[in-house]
């Protein structure tokens, strides 16, 4: 169901998944940001990751 996107009407608050330089930039701009500690699922083992996905 399509709702009106309120993004432009509110302060931007960011979750950053990946490159830390982007979190550094957002902090410099005084933007609220949470840096995730993202790791490849199942330590990058594709077979195990696929299995975990099926179990989810």
């Amino acid at each position: 169901m399509k709702e009106k996107n309120q993004l432009f009407k509110k302060d931007i608050k960011v979750i950053n998944m990946g490159l830390e330089i982007f979190t550094d930039s957002l902090k410099n701009q005084k933007v609220e940001v949470v840096q995730m500690d993202w790791k490849p699922p199942a330590g990058g083992n594709k077979k195990l990751a696929d299995l975990l996905k099926k179990m989810r």
Partner: peptide
């Protein structure tokens, strides 16, 4: 540092952008 999106949202419940 949260490991999942769910736990990141607990830290920042009104997040509106994921990079």
């Amino acid at each position: 540092r949260p490991k999942t999106l769910d736990s990141a949202l607990k830290q920042l419940p009104d997040a509106n952008m994921v990079v």
